[in-house]
């Protein structure tokens, strides 16, 4: 037989573990939020695009061409007309390109919105890097204002050679003010 005081100590440790584990699992549910974000950023899961801070020099293969298509959507009755300036362009991986999206506020009110990007196919998301994007910040639309928002991006040459078409879509959401 184990000594009674030792047994009491074992029981106490056991208790602490039993009560702590549900609390830790509750915290884990919240920890999944940042874990999920980091996971999406690293893997390009969910079409999450990447961001770079300066123009890098890549090895360029002039013979490769990728067709990039641009899409624009608005969610939940967002009262802004939103469209890409051009619908598609041919891109050489490793070169930087600039294009833009156009948005027009048709109301008499100030509207604040946030664009959320997504790239398909998801395997391409990891190599789609943006130097400049209106999706990095909230956008403020004055009443009846029409603005042109620039986008500067590069598709990295590491992209799988089998991928010939990439779509970039933006979804504008209204932010509660």
């Amino acid at each position: 037989m184990v000594d009674i005081s030792v047994r009491k100590k074992i029981t106490k440790i056991f208790w602490i573990k039993l009560i702590l584990s549900p609390i830790l699992m509750f915290a884990f549910a919240y920890a999944m939020v940042p874990i999920y974000d980091v996971f999406c950023e690293i893997t390009g899961f969910n079409g999450t695009t990447g961001r770079i801070n300066s123009e890098q020099v890549y090895a360029i293969d002039e013979s490769r061409r990728i067709e990039v298509s641009f899409f624009a959507m608005t969610m939940g009755g967002f009262p802004v007309q939103f469209r890409p300036k051009i619908n598609s362009m041919e891109v050489i991986p490793g070169k930087f390109y600039t294009t833009s999206y156009i948005a027009k506020n048709n109301t008499d009110k100030v509207i604040i919105g946030q664009a959320v990007p997504s790239v398909a196919p998801t395997e391409a998301a990891l190599y789609f890097k943006k130097l400049e994007c209106f999706c990095f910040n909230k956008q403020v639309f004055e009443p009846h204002q029409k603005i042109e928002m620039t986008l500067r991006f590069v598709i990295e040459p590491e992209l799988d050679k089998r991928i010939k078409d990439v779509s970039l879509s933006y979804n504008f959401f209204k932010i509660k003010s």
Binding site: S21, M25, F26, A27, A29, M32, K176
Partner: peptide, 22 residues
């Protein structure tokens, strides 16, 4: 149960704050 139920509690708590607390 002690591994999974707290995660459900976490999910509904997030729902609750999304719905009511911005």
């Amino acid at each position: 149960l002690i591994g999974a139920m707290p995660v459900l509690a976490g999910a509904v708590t997030m729902m609750l704050t999304d719905r009511n607390f911005g």
